[in-house]
Design a protein around this nucleic acid. Sequence first.
DNA 1: ACTGAAAGCTGGCCTCG
DNA 2: CGAGGCCAGCTTTCAGT
Lengths: 157, 157
Amino acid sequence: MNKIEYNLDQTDHAILRLMQENARISNADIARELGMAPSAILERIKKLEQREVILQYRTKINPAALDQTLLSFIFIRAADGIGCATTGQALAAIPEVQEVHDIAGDDGYLVKVRTADSAALVELMRNSFAKIPSIISTRTTIVLETVKEEQQLVIPE
Amino acid sequence: MNKIEYNLDQTDHAILRLMQENARISNADIARELGMAPSAILERIKKLEQREVILQYRTKINPAALDQTLLSFIFIRAADGIGCATTGQALAAIPEVQEVHDIAGDDGYLVKVRTADSAALVELMRNSFAKIPSIISTRTTIVLETVKEEQQLVIPE
DNA sequence: ACTGAAAGCTGGCCTCG
DNA sequence: CGAGGCCAGCTTTCAGT
């Protein structure tokens, strides 16, 4: 497992800054902003996608519009061996599970789940979580209000 | 604070499903997929944006490409009065802080932070967190590996 | 690695069913 | 609410530097 060199220059950073904010910006608009030809921008974007600097383009939908207003974080203790990540993969396969993080200490996972309400959360835990045999215990934390929720990275320059 | 009715139909759901997966899909492609005219799709998308069903279009960038490989969750106990959310807002203003959730119990916040390494995390806590006087205590959990990290919602039909 | 030109296609608007 | 037509402007390719 080598460390990959990405070697992004200021132009790449500027493109990423614009696209991170608005994934549907046109190449022509980026080109105007940076004083370059649209074809040059297109070429760079394609390379950024190829080198997996850009991972995907996502539309953020209002959870309330789809009746998924309850957000919860669940700590999960699991009986995985070291380096064996089957529990994590089983959790990741559940669509209501948005995030699965392997965390330090307690041989555990931190999981982020979105459901309609607490009844749906209980049902999800009974139906999906209970079927993962390696889970030892869970501790659920309910979110009352989300103040900020972004995946925006800090881009230099 | 009224509950808003969104009243999305199957066509809206189909559009959201396609756009959630790929924010840069063209209206023409959506139209072909659904067997409709592009102008009809355009109209629906505009209404979805207007009604804030669609919140934003985001490009997901590889954190490793920008040297931000350390992900941490921090529990923060704060001395806010009930309903008074100044601590949350101060936390949200920090760019490295990706998420701030007001959580039930312990009058606390759960915060998600991305930094280059543990040294940068320590520095961030010394420089930024320490300047928020209402913070009583913090407990930091380091992420060893992220198995899944999406904001994709489950869309019916 | 960027520019500029050329071809085809798309976005956005309008009118009509 | 959606189809179809229209044109400016966009995407994409390619030769040239």
